[in-house]
Design a protein around this nucleic acid. Structure first.
Length: 451
RNA sequence: GCUGAGGUAGCCUAGCCCGGUAAGGCGCCAGCCUUGAAAGCUGGUGGCGGCGACGCCACGGGAGUUCAAAUCUCCCCCUCAGCGCCA
């Protein structure tokens, strides 16, 4: 977000930013007009209060009590002040809300365009391995091996929740350890943050006020379930001042993430590509404004290192101005190719928010001790999101004989195993459906022998 | 959850009972002094508006009483201590 002072200085730049986002640049002028009215009203309150103060202060300690006439006059002044103050509060609130909702101007290197289709592909990684020509969707493989269980997730919690069983649960933990180890070696300091968040923090990173319906709320305690570790980790330094020589701060956090994904149903929600709870390793970067675009590239490379390490097919896209989240000035998405689902899956979003979050959350640095602190730039990137990573592994690492290979970098973590083992525990119901892995294989073998 | 003590400028503290322009220290910045530094001395050091003179705001947050609120009343938040509960 822009402070009103910043907006006055950079009005044309912000107007152009709105145009590039296909939004009405007139919002800037309306904001400036509200600001002018606010200042006029503030001056009026100012003058009235000055009158009250001089009258009150004129009376020295132990002085005479005011006359009845003066009491009446001052009482009337007090009421007048209250009326104008109420008007000022209303216009203050309007100004604040409009500033909170004003998007960040896209950076010059952001491509033009309105939708996801206008994004520019920057890079495509082709893995060294090959996958079956007729790759199956991850949920088919997951069900066949009895490792993925959405049905009971729905029973225990609701739509969009799932259980991972056995080797798939172990694989998820192996991935988390792999990613944390990788980022640690690249210089990130790990933090383990709270995942219940207060509203002020949600406002600080931009989840509020506009995107309240995207997150789960714990009403009784006025808390929110973090939709991403970006929220607690960025707010870690809310209302604080950095020493410039310490920057950049590069932090990593592994947390579960919770998203309501309201309205997101249909074909694309089969399996676990789009769920309400997933784990993620998040990278957060606090930097000097003059270095934030270098840091964006560093962050992108750090996120890519995960996908390269796993040797998964992916591409990097530079989001078009009109498709950019309001808080971002520039955003790269890393998308994995899922051959079984025949689509690209976003597993990482790497963004430079410039001073958008730092202004809201009051995160600053002070270059010279005698000068007032300035907002830092904040950036973050997923490094990376689970669930979708599992989707990609299940679909890319499946073999012709319907097994799933374990990526080389995870094998040590998986006790040296080369393939995922089916979950042997099945209930009566699964047996009745012929889903027992052993029976399933026998049945398949029998079918192919007879056919 | 109960009881008690607290929340004042970047930090530490006085003022609160008994209403009357928020005092002092540390730190920091600048100047003087000095070969340089330290010490010492002087000044400055929250936010908003204004070219400026200056004015307003700010004592955890909100509401109220009053000519006038850091100070009185009510509600709420947070911290600490003791007790209770608890993985």
């Amino acid at each position: 977000m822009y402070s009103i002072a910043e907006l006055r200085k950079r009005a044309e730049e912000v107007r152009e930013g709105l145009r590039r986002r296909y939004l009405d640049p007139g919002e800037v002028d309306q904001l400036l007009e509200v600001d002018t009215r606010r200042r006029a009203l503030a001056e009026e309150v100012n003058g009235l209060r000055a009158r009250r103060n001089t009258a009150a202060h004129r009376r020295p300690e132990g002085g005479t009590a005011p006359s009845a006439e003066e009491r009446v006059e001052m009482g009337a002044l007090r009421e007048r002040i209250r009326v104008v103050e109420t008007q000022l509060e209303a216009i203050d609130a309007e100004l604040r809300t409009r500033l909170l909702l004003l998007p960040q101007a896209p950076h010059a290197s952001v491509p033009p365009g309105r939708t996801g289709a206008d994004a520019v592909e920057l890079y495509r990684h082709v893995p060294t391995r090959t996958t079956p020509t007729q790759a199956k969707p991850h949920f088919e493989i997951g069900h066949a091996l009895n490792l993925l269980d959405e049905e009971r997730g729905v029973k225990v919690t609701g739509e969009g929740f799932y259980f991972l069983w056995g080797d798939l649960a172990r694989l998820e933990h192996a991935l988390i350890r792999f990613m944390r180890r990788l980022h640690h070696s690249r210089g990130y300091i790990e933090v383990a943050p709270p995942i219940l968040i207060n509203s002020e923090s949600m406002l600080g990173t931009g989840q509020l006020p506009k995107f309240a319906e995207d997150s789960y709320q714990v009403k009784l305690d006025e808390l929110w379930l973090a939709p991403t570790a970006e929220v607690p980790v960025t707010n870690l330094f809310r209302d604080e001042v950095f020493l410039p020589e310490d920057l950049p701060y590069r932090l990593m956090a592994y947390t579960p993430c919770f998203r309501r994904e309201a309205g997101g149903h249909g074909v694309e929600t089969r399996g676990i590509a789009r769920v309400h709870q997933f784990d993620k390793v998040e990278l957060v970067n606090f930097t000097l404004p003059e270095h934030s675009y270098e840091q964006l590239e560093v962050l992108r490379e750090d996120a890519e290192a995960v996908l390269k390490g796993l040797d998964l097919p992916y591409r990097v896209i530079n989001l078009a101005a009109g498709d950019l989240p309001p808080k971002a000035a520039k955003c790269y998405d890393l998308e994995l190719w899922a051959p079984g689902s025949n689509r690209w899956l976003e597993v990482s979003s790497v963004s430079n928010f410039e001073a958008y979050q730092a202004t809201r959350a009051n995160i600053r640095y002070r270059k010279v001790q005698s000068e007032r602190p300035e907002p830092v730039h904040t950036l973050n990137g997923s490094g990376t999101a689970l669930a979708r990573l599992l989707v990609a592994i299940l679909e890319n690492y499946q073999t012709e004989d319907d097994r799933v290979e374990i990526p080389a970098v995870l094998r040590e973590e998986m006790g040296g195993a080369k393939h995922l083992e089916p979950n042997p525990l099945v209930g009566e119901r699964e047996l009745a459906r012929g889903r027992h892995p052993k029976r399933g294989r026998d049945a398949q073998a029998a079918a192919s022998a007879s056919g």
